[in-house]
Design a protein around this nucleic acid. Sequence first.
DNA 1: GCCAACGTTGGC
DNA 2: GCCAACGTTGGC
Length: 157
Amino acid sequence: MQYWLVKSEPDAFGIDDLANMPDQTEHWDGVRNYQARNFMRDEMKCGDQVFFYHSNCKEPGIVGIVEVVREGYPDHTAFDPEGKYYDPKSDPDRPRWYMVDVKLVQRFRQTISLSSMKTRPELEGMRLLQKGNRLSVMPIAPEHWQVILDLYRENIG
DNA sequence: GCCAACGTTGGC
DNA sequence: GCCAACGTTGGC
């Protein structure tokens, strides 16, 4: 079992949007970065636990936990010429982009803010905290996962 | 809205 | 294969 983090802009698709989906499940489409693609196509497995991160918003941070419920398969939004994720270089015979399905596990009552994570020496070295980091799907070390959960429990008292 | 950091593209 | 130009990400 592995741990991950995925980013999304709440204006585009936030954790509340996931909560409102049928079965609280949705495919994680639109990722157009090879490293992130490889994680989804090759490494994310059913049952893996994933932090849901809100980026590009008032209070960036982790807002909940989701779980992988379907492993990597072609991202069909790349095939739709009308869609904003269209990529003419990807077609059903030779798909370039992949996605997984995720299901909501828990919505945090309080955001674990990026700034609060930055104050934690135990989280030093986390990819998320590195300057200029733009990867939208990334692995999380088990010890970091635990530290972050502890942070959450402290916060909600 | 600004801007630094990054990934991709394309000319050479 | 190099690298400048460009578009995008994302914190602030």
